[in-house]
């Protein structure tokens, strides 16, 4: 039998502009978009730098970075030390990570490997929706729910303290950590599971000893992203941590993070004063911190994608 072609031959339709030009236009469009976001980022950075500079005509950089007291409205001597706020930020963030990381990885492992497909289909979207709860609402829960519980458990006067902030930030970081970790764990090749199960390992042993180590860089990136959110979060910590501008004493005492300080004071400060510029300097410190966290997580995530290909 010979091959027969009965239908008419196809005719190629030429587009009104050549493909090469079209390619170039599309390329240009996306290039512009990319450039624009870089410009915005650089713009914010430049703005923060330039508005911070006047602050350092009055404040010694050393006493800003290493000063132990923040009291810009003192009648005796104005103090611009950011250490109490840095310590507060680290405490609240660290506390949040200590709570959220084990819980998040455990949940991710459960969802990816142990839960039945139906449970996973229901639970994962719910966890992701958690990410959309406004921070004001979480802060409110901190005041009316978490605070009183903490006060009762630890017998303190009130529950507005660093621990409260950590608990709330943990709740806020969990969706990111669970969602991205779950993706990372699910993306571990099935052949590893098979090998592990065939050696007599249980599902949990397989997840903990094979899959989590194999997905580790993805999980670390997930935690870093969660942390980035915790460092930059303002409203929740403002509402739940008591906000005393002194050096924090313990997790059960009030603390005041970088973000809360900016939010509280920027509304009241007189325009173009040293205090005003100092708040922008705080913003610059915060910007650099979150930028570093996000960049680190991005680098780790990238490395992880390469390894898995």
């Amino acid at each position: 039998m010979s091959i027969q072609i009965l239908s008419p031959r196809i005719t190629v339709v030429k587009p009104w502009i050549s493909l090469a030009v079209k390619e170039k236009l599309i390329h240009g469009f996306f290039f512009l978009n990319g450039i624009l976001s870089v410009i915005v980022l650089l713009g914010i950075f430049a703005l923060l730098v330039f508005t911070s500079i006047p602050a350092f005509q009055e404040i010694n950089v050393g006493s800003f970075l290493f000063g132990l007291e923040w009291n810009p409205t003192s009648y005796v001597k104005e103090q611009y030390g950011i250490i109490p706020m840095l310590v507060s930020t680290f405490m609240v963030t660290l506390g949040a990570l200590v709570i959220a990381v084990p819980l998040g990885i455990g949940t991710a492992a459960y969802l990816s490997d142990v839960a039945s497909p139906r449970v996973r289909e229901i639970a994962k979207p719910i966890v992701e929706i958690l990410a959309g709860i406004p921070s004001v609402v979480i802060g409110f829960l901190g005041i009316v729910l978490v605070g009183p519980i903490l006060a009762k458990v630890f017998g303190t006067h009130n529950g507005l303290n660093a621990l409260n902030g950590s608990v709330l930030l943990a709740v806020m970081a969990l969706p990111t950590i669970v969602s991205i970790s779950e993706d990372a764990i699910s993306n571990v090749p099935k052949s590893y599971d098979q090998a592990s199960l065939a050696l007599g390992a249980s599902k949990w042993q397989t997840v903990i000893k094979v899959k989590i180590p194999a997905a580790l860089s993805g999980i670390i990136a997930a935690c870093m992203l969660g942390m980035g959110r915790a460092v930059g979060e303002t409203m929740t910590v403002l509402m739940a941590t008591g906000c005393a501008p002194a050096m924090p004493e313990s997790f059960l005492g009030p603390v005041r993070t970088l973000t809360s300080s900016i939010a509280i004071e920027l509304g009241e400060v007189a325009y173009n004063t040293t205090h005003y510029y100092a708040l922008f300097a705080l913003g610059l410190v915060l910007f650099i911190m979150t930028f570093l966290v996000n960049m680190t997580s991005d680098i780790i995530l990238h490395k992880y994608e390469k390894v898995n290909r």
Binding site: P189, S191, Y192, Q194, A195, S196, L197, A198, L199, G200, A201, S202, V210, P213, A214
Partner: peptide, 18 residues
């Protein structure tokens, strides 16, 4: 678990752990 310890398996595509 006892069964799988007693009956080892090697797969078509080699699959060492990372």
């Amino acid at each position: 678990v006892d069964l799988r310890r007693n009956v080892g398996m090697v797969f078509q595509k080699s699959n060492p752990f990372p």
